[in-house]
Amino acid sequence: MSVDDATVRKIARLARIEIHEDKVTKMANELNGILNWIEMLNEVDVNGVEPMASAVAIALPMRDDAVTDGNIQSSILKNAPKADSGFFVVPKSVE
């Protein structure tokens, strides 16, 4: 499996990171270098092994679905790049 320029453009779009056209091939080469190294995992016998998603084998705790805070509108908006009248201001997304 190797990454070509079209794949780099595709995953960059999925990741919402703009990559200049003159950097695409360089990025493809870098990713291939890393992915080729990772290929060695194919040597490991993983038959019948359960995938491990968490470092600790505990059941996640449940909590009540209850409101525990509120009235913090100004805190929430404090770091917004743009805010107005208690709202986040974002670029127009529906024509």
Binding site: V46, V49, P51
Partner: peptide
């Protein structure tokens, strides 16, 4: 298309 080949396999290696 790549999830099983990479991510799932890595999680299994992690178990190993």
């Amino acid at each position: 298309g790549y999830y099983d080949a990479y991510y799932l396999r890595a999680q299994k290696v992690r178990a190993r």
